Simulated scan of single mutants.
Amino acid sequence: MTRSTSRVPAVELAPSPTEPLRLQILSALALHRMATTGQLRQMLRPDSSRQLFSRVLNKLRATGFVDLTPLPDSQRSRTHAWYLTAEGARLTRDLPVLRGRPPYPITSSTAASLKTAHTLTVVRSHLPFAADARRLGHEHSPWDWTPEVSHPIGESERLVADAVMRYTVINGEHRRMLRAFVEVDRTTMSSERLAVKLIEYARLYHYEAQPVGRRRPVSTGPTWLRWYPVYPRVLLVLTGASPARLGDRISDLQAMVAQHPLVAALAREVPLGAAILEDIEEQGASGPVWSPLAGGESRPWTSL
């Protein structure tokens, strides 16, 4: 019999020595919208067993906090993705680790089925960065990757980044704090439409909001300074086609940087790079797999 969750106090979700994984899973699904069992394990506790995660997830489903949707792949019919129910979203909305994060949970099977492919690919793109941080001793947690971050770019338009990543490189006593906008392309849009995303990032770089009621323009500085001390680098992750076709798309992005004056100006100030997701997974996110969009040899994303 399924236990009613309407009277379950949020305090039950506080970490405990015996069951902290339950809280971590709920927090991860609240932030990342959706994930498979394997992705949650890689993200939170890669040294733990899949059976442990399955057991905790099934308990959360029995109590009404999470639900699942099958993946649209006949060859993986037993694989599914997890997401928060409306009750699970309600209980996690005030958790400290999620404070200030945009609340865009997926809380229905219909919404889950529509968003599965892209959402899971964004999570998949995050995992190599998390694995590199653990291996190299850098600072980067599951909470340092925020999906679907929206910014105004003028004329009542907004740029929505697939994710904003925070990552601290540690080399002895030296700490280098990096931020990046991450765009994930599954080859579902034309190469030209993908390149237009660079124009939107260039618009955000230059956009300055004007105070309401001012007749004369008054410079308040770029709007992005409200959120970032330095404009984040822009990383494009490509998948969903042959290596040759993805290489052509990277070439198209480089052509946009060379030909569009606003994007060219951005590239002179901000590192821009693109890589193939499968290469990132095989060689690591810190491997020499990133093509600088301003030209040059492939290199790690931290060296763009």
Score class of each variant (00 low, 15 high):
Thr2Phe: 07
Arg3Phe: 08
Ser4Pro: 06
Arg7Lys: 10
Val8Phe: 14
Val8Ser: 15
Leu13Tyr: 11
Pro15Ala: 14
Pro15Asn: 06
Ser16Lys: 07
Thr18Glu: 13
Gln24Trp: 13
Ile25Asp: 06
Ala28Trp: 01
Ala30Pro: 05
Ala30Lys: 12
Ala30Arg: 15
Leu31Cys: 01
Arg33Met: 08
Gln39Asn: 05
Gln42His: 14
Met43Glu: 12
Met43Tyr: 03
Arg45Gln: 11
Pro46Gly: 03
Asp47Tyr: 04
Ser49Gln: 04
Ser54His: 04
Ser54Gln: 11
Arg55Phe: 07
Val56Asp: 03
Val56Cys: 03
Leu57Trp: 10
Leu60Asn: 01
Gly64Pro: 05
Asp73Gly: 00
Asp73His: 03
Thr79Ile: 12
Tyr83Thr: 03
Thr85Trp: 03
Glu87Val: 03
Thr92Ala: 15
Arg93Thr: 07
Asp94Lys: 08
Leu98Thr: 06
Leu98Gln: 04
Leu98Trp: 03
Arg99Lys: 13
Tyr104Ile: 05
Ile106Ser: 08
Leu120Asp: 00
Leu120Tyr: 00
Val122Cys: 13
Leu127Phe: 03
Leu127Cys: 04
Ala131Ile: 07
Arg134Val: 08
Leu136Cys: 13
Leu136Trp: 09
Glu139Trp: 06
Trp143Asp: 12
Trp145Gly: 05
Thr146Val: 13
Pro147Asp: 04
Ile153Cys: 14
Gly154Asn: 14
Val160Arg: 14
Ala161Leu: 06
Tyr167Leu: 02
Val169Phe: 09
Thr188Ser: 14
Ser190Thr: 14
Ser190Tyr: 06
Ser191Gln: 14
Leu194Lys: 11
Lys197Tyr: 07
Ile199Phe: 09
His206Thr: 11
Tyr207Ser: 05
Glu208His: 15
Glu208Leu: 06
Val218Lys: 05
Thr223Gly: 02
Trp224Ala: 00
Tyr228His: 15
Pro229Tyr: 03
Tyr231Phe: 15
Pro232Phe: 00
Leu235Lys: 00
Leu235Arg: 01
Leu236Arg: 00
Leu236Ile: 15
Leu236Phe: 02
Thr239Met: 09
Thr239Ala: 13
Gly240Ala: 09
Gly240Phe: 01
Gly247Pro: 08
Arg249Cys: 01
Ser251Met: 07
Gln254Val: 08
Val263Cys: 12
Ala265Pro: 03
Ala267Ser: 10
Ala267Pro: 05
Pro271Leu: 02
Gly273Thr: 00
Ala274Thr: 06
Glu281Arg: 10
Glu282Ile: 07
Gln283Met: 10
Gln283Asn: 10
Gln283Leu: 11
Gly284Thr: 05
Gly287Thr: 02
Gly287Phe: 01
Val289Ser: 09
Gly296Trp: 01
Glu297Arg: 11
Pro300Lys: 06
Trp301Phe: 15
Ser303Gly: 13
Leu304Gly: 09
Leu304Arg: 02
